[in-house]
């Protein structure tokens, strides 16, 4: 009789262990960022590496993208739990009826810009008339097109690749660039800043806040606490990254190496600095103010999307952005 009880006891213990293991696997939170590892995602990398997600009691797995699939699509398919995405893209999705919510607007300032060489005689937007302009696909074209429209520029557009070589080889005169990425790559190709002319969209009333953290409405409503934990740990990760940039760069470079990224530390350092200024745009070091999407920014992006007929109606801000408060 005693042995029967013992066997039953053992069975109960094992099944509990098995069940809890299954649960913990199930509890792995998949968090996908838009691109390969780089300083653009340093905050999440450091939150993961320093155990801030774990401290919140969640088991986050960071997933990087290769550009072949959109994290938003993955999110809506239910393949992942959280992702980062551009505001313009998610407003469009939301307007199209996709059920997603922004739980943290990380980057406040648009880094997208146009760059021209002074040698191609471009000094102001009108000078782009008659020139060849390189554009990426999708959301990256929204601001440039608005810019072209704004200044009534007549120019040839080409789809540029995700490098600067065509621009450097003068295959096109104007390059779409991220300030934290391509702009600096051009500098690292030996062109001096004073040899370039830059058009920051943020300076032309086209400031699109970029990376934000998204989840589905379902996730938000059913697991609000989890969303808060993601928010909390991610902001903490960013804070750490800015406070300990060298350690952060070590980690970022380690990730880059693992992904065989053809990048270098100088470049990642530049990127981290630009990202920092974008996160701290208008808020400074006040952590309480980080990650907030401002309604006017939202409205502005929505307005432009509407004007460009990407969307018909701007979804209500309250449905789109769910605010969390950072806790010290």
């Amino acid at each position: 009789m005693r042995s029967v009880i013992l066997i039953i006891f053992i069975i109960i213990i094992f099944s509990t262990l098995l069940y809890s293991q299954e649960e913990s696997h199930k509890d792995t939170i998949l968090f996908q960022v838009q691109w390969f590892p780089q300083s653009q995602f340093a905050g999440y990398i450091m939150a993961y590496e320093k155990g801030f997600y774990k401290d919140e009691g969640i088991n986050v797995k960071l997933i990087f993208s290769d550009g072949s699939n959109s994290p938003i699509d993955e999110l809506l398919k239910g393949n992942i739990d959280f992702c980062t995405a551009w505001l313009s893209q998610t407003i469009t999705s939301k307007a199209e009826g996709r059920k997603l919510v922004n739980i943290c607007q990380v980057l406040q300032k648009s880094s997208l810009m146009l760059i021209a060489k002074k040698s191609s005689n471009i000094f102001k937007p009108e000078d782009i008339n008659g020139k060849r302009i390189g554009l990426w696909k999708g959301d990256f074209t929204i601001q440039p097109n608005a810019f072209i429209k704004k200044y009534d520029i007549k120019c040839e557009t080409v789809q540029q690749s995700y490098n600067i070589h065509g621009f450097l080889a003068n295959a096109w005169d104007v390059e779409s660039a991220m300030y934290y990425n391509e702009y600096h790559k051009i500098i690292l190709a030996g062109i001096n800043e004073d040899e370039l002319v830059t058009f920051f969209f943020s300076d032309y009333d086209l400031n699109f806040p970029e990376d934000g953290i998204y989840c589905t409405e379902d996730t938000y409503y059913s697991r609000t606490e989890l969303c808060r934990k993601i928010f909390q740990a991610s902001i903490k990760g960013w804070e750490y990254a800015f406070n300990f940039p060298e350690e952060t760069l070590d980690k970022v470079m380690q990730y880059c190496d693992e992904f065989h990224m053809q990048t270098n530390r100088s470049h990642q350092k530049w990127m981290l600095n630009v990202i920092e200024s974008s996160i701290k745009y208008k808020t400074g070091d006040s952590l309480q103010d980080w990650g907030k999407l401002k309604k006017e920014d939202y409205e502005k992006v929505g307005e432009i999307l509407k004007n460009q007929e990407f969307i018909k109606n701007i979804p209500p801000f309250e449905d789109f952005f769910k605010e969390f408060q950072y806790e010290e």
């Binding site: 500098i187 690292l188 190709a189 030996g190 270098n264 100088s266």
Partner: peptide, 12 residues
């Protein structure tokens, strides 16, 4: 190779 440029080294 392919990662660094002479200018990235100069900057670093």
């Amino acid at each position: 190779i392919m990662r660094e440029t002479i200018f990235s080294k100069a900057e670093m």
